[in-house]
Design a protein around this nucleic acid. Sequence first.
RNA 1: GCCCCCUUGGCGGAAUUGGCAGACGCACGGGACUUAAAAUCCCGAGACUUAACAGUCGUCCCGGUUCGAGUCCGGGAGGGGGCACCA
Length: 860
Amino acid sequence: MARYNAKTTEAKWQAAWKAARTFEAVEDPDKPKYYVLEMFPYPSGRIHMGHVRNYAMGDVVARYKRARGFNVLHPMGWDAFGLPAENAALEKQIHPAKWTYENIANMRSQLQAMGLSLDWSREFATCDVEYYRHQQKLFLDLLDSDMAYRRESWVNWDPAEQTVLANEQVIDGRGWRSGEPVERRQLWQWFFRITAFEDELLDALGDLERWPDKVRLMQANWIGRSEGARLRFAVKHQDLEIEVFTTRPDTIFGASFLALSPDHPETAALAADNPEIAAFVTECRRQGTSEEAVEKAEKLGFDTGLRARHPFSDDVELPVYIANFVLIGYGTGAIFGCPAHDQRDLDFARKYGLAVQPVVVPKGTEASEFAVGTEAYTGPGLLANSEFLDGMSMEDAMGEVARRAEEGNFGTQEVMYRLRDWGVSRQRYWGCPIPVVHCDDCGVVPVHEADLPITLPDDVTFDRPGNPLDRHPTWGATDCPVCGKSARRETDTFDTFVDSSWYFARFCSPHADRPLDKAAVDYWLPVDQYIGGVEHAILHLLYARFYTRAIQKCGHLAVSEPFAGLFTQGMVCHETYRDDDGNWLEPTEVSRNDTGQLVRMDNSAAVTTGRSEKMSKSRKNVIDPEDIIERYGADTARWFMLSDSPPERDLEWTDGGIEGAWRFTGRIWRIIEEAAVELPPPGLAMPDHFGDRALALRRITHQAIAAVTDGIERFQFNVSVARLYEIANALGSLEAEDQSGKDAAGEGWARREAIESLVVMIGPMMPHLAEEAWQALGRSGLLADAPWPTVDASLLVEDIVTIAVQLNGKIRATLEIERDQAEGDVRDAALALDKVKAAVADKTVRRVIVVPNRIVNVVI
RNA sequence: GCCCCCUUGGCGGAAUUGGCAGACGCACGGGACUUAAAAUCCCGAGACUUAACAGUCGUCCCGGUUCGAGUCCGGGAGGGGGCACCA
């Protein structure tokens, strides 16, 4: 009996699939299509366990759907532009293109070693000119239909590196690499008009039934629709009005101040003649641009000296502050503060000694007895201290304030969104060039379509700060497409989220000479099942939803929602290790010494174990999939990824877990080898009769088929795995029993049925082992082309059911009875049980609840 | 700060969605095979009480709804994630 050799077997079947072009998809109008897609990877150089988990799941779906008769599209490519390539260029003096394509080559072979059912003929990288030339064409179309535009916007600017920093690259107000204080700067940037679709993007979430509720909620919150009012406040002794947006117009009589954003135009005007204000604004701009930084920062304000008139009572005047917590990007960039009913406003009011007047009091509380201390009251209640609003509900008061404001022409009811337009400009080299030209006479002009692609220059250096495209000696020089005079190319490149906003569509026709081939796209889209990390729940998925609508308007495709089904998988985690000097250590760098203590392998220094966290290079708690595949094979790695942990939750990597998976592959192989010699040949007609043992096995088999199928359909692969263990256990114990006379009772046939079902069902999870087993069982053709087993529903139900019998809700006995008995009979049988009779004794039975085939509850 | 998620044996988790809590796996203990080990196979196991039969408790905590709650409702604790230039 040959031991199963994962390495040679896996290579053998990978070659067989490739030779047969098994996974190359062709449009076929006669078959139902199914498009499975996992979020394509960034080519960092090596695959990590997160990829293995993601692609193992996708492959289960893809292979399962194939077996169910679908025409499956399952492509793979590379999200290949982005910062890491430039960082590598900076640190390792290697060109981003070279680095990226070398990484792709390496990762491709790693993915191929996983034995995924991918159509490699459709592979592309977003940094391929053949991809981004079409992206440039799409951009020209967006520009044409006014869905792209330019405006000034704020960025984090690192003066030392001469570059824009991401929020995560700003640490305590300083650049992550330079350590220099970061400035906030305004820059002219390109934007996509995602806000034109905000209502549609929000409303359509309701139709995305196969998306997790969690993700839909996150997107809804992100879009952040809120109803409120826009109110204008006149400033006393000035020819000036300040417009605010509020979601709580009902609290207008509780207003005690107005606050302007430091970036508000009026603030700038004030700062121009007041150095103190200018200094305050500069101070505010030290804090980061992220919402988190703004919200967490200590509330700071500067009294401008301006006083605004309360719109409903002339004798009330409101001081106008500039406050660091007012965002310019939301609403009007100015607010009225009602400290009693908003925590931020309250913190601010306490700090600057402003009035705190409650105007909403809980029902049943006297207004005179209701006071606000250190916590704002944001709960429900009735209006008080509010003149004509007194006694109204909050809802009525909001309507009344808006009505009166409209009447008095100083405000309107309004719906506001948190969503902002999508800034797509990046001042970087390694991205898709934005195909426009800056002409002194004609302004910003799109490049002629015939002049596409605008390719990146190869001869760039990263030895100096700033964008290499800006300082390239010749690349930027061109002629204006309109007037022909010399002009300059746009040096901004696209955000990589643009690349990933249509790649799924390009996969339908990856070699088309237009961005999308309509026939192919109409056949394959939408993606039926999209799988990836929850970290993309908002941005990538929202941008892709928007972009699909935007290019739909330009006539490139027919669908408006790109992903009909979405699954977000959990992360892969591992314990973390640090030595006493605080250095992170890789799992391979630590071991247990004689006393069982964790120590560094090189110098025996003590190591402390930290909590399990997402595998990451920075914490060094990574297990390299290549090592695992080398040692155990891809099937074992895939099996472990699918076992135990529910796919949406985090998976804890353990040595024990992978060992267990490895043992199981060996066990399957032993079952197959032992069975192969004694089973009847494949394809025999089903016998007319089965003995008890054969019938019992068939029941197990068909119950397992039903459960495994259900598990895959519901994305509970861990449950499917458990059921596969059960059928393997059943076959194992059958092995041990006496087998004489089995053929007469149809046992051989039932055993073949069980084993073949097991093999077909592990196929999506451990495809190489399954192919090898299929062959060993005497089957011809590829298992990858074999149909999924069908369930005989009559074998799912047992004739005798065990019913739990409760007394006052506590289980006291069980009852074996034929299934589907009349309720009265079940009730009588339960009451006739000794235990029940003893408990009831002379008491009266008040009630008996019978749940068919499940439970009887006797209430006494 | 705001928003979201999670919490079941020593561990990962299951529970047909309100009906026998702990399937399946890991780790552990005992046994078989072996000269021995590895591998493999078999058996055991939530906690507490008991010699045993058996009983009590038990799904983060407190309360509620219900004949019946891991599951529904209210309140609380702990852990984690996201917050617009990482991808």
